[in-house]
């Protein structure tokens, strides 16, 4: 139930922030045109909440009610990280959608976020297959 509440709050945050308006996202990425810097405040706001949260979690080792802190096993920078992020950026720039806003936008009146999310799911499964093939090779 906590997960449901977090998803709900996350969606409302994205909506308020303007992240679910592809034209606004494109205007943010359009640094050589009429740049709209307001989405910097979205990242800045979210990061400013999370920085002290990580600090507290690192010091205490546990969250509320003995919840364990997540463990991060990957620390090195590799080709998959950089190439994957580069590919993601191209898709983001083409559509103005990153994963969260695309999922939230499925609730809207237009059909196209459904198409986006369907191909995003296909891309997700394709990445799984790609990882399996490259791990075996």
């Amino acid at each position: 139930m906590i997960a449901f509440l977090c998803g709900l709050l996350f969606a409302l945050g994205l909506g308020l922030a303007g992240m679910t308006q592809p034209a606004k996202v494109i205007a943010f990425l359009d640094v050589s045109g009429t740049w709209d810097p307001s989405l910097l405040f979205v990242m800045g706001g979210a990061i400013s909440v999370m920085v002290p949260v990580w600090r507290v979690l690192a010091r205490r080792g546990r969250g509320f009610g003995n919840v364990r802190a997540p463990v991060f096993d990957k620390t090195h920078v590799d080709g998959a990280l950089v190439v994957g992020a580069a590919i993601f950026g191209v898709g983001w720039g083409l559509s103005g959608y990153c994963p969260g806003p695309a999922l939230v936008s499925m609730a809207g009146a237009t059909f196209s976020p459904l198409v986006f999310v369907f191909s995003m799911a296909v891309g997700t499964l394709a990445a799984r297959l790609f990882r399996k093939i490259t791990a075996a090779a």
């Binding site: 191209v90 995003m120 499964l125």
Partner: peptide
């Protein structure tokens, strides 16, 4: 774009 976002992020 959806495919690129799904594949790239994962």
């Amino acid at each position: 774009a959806g495919f690129l976002v799904g594949f790239g992020t994962r």
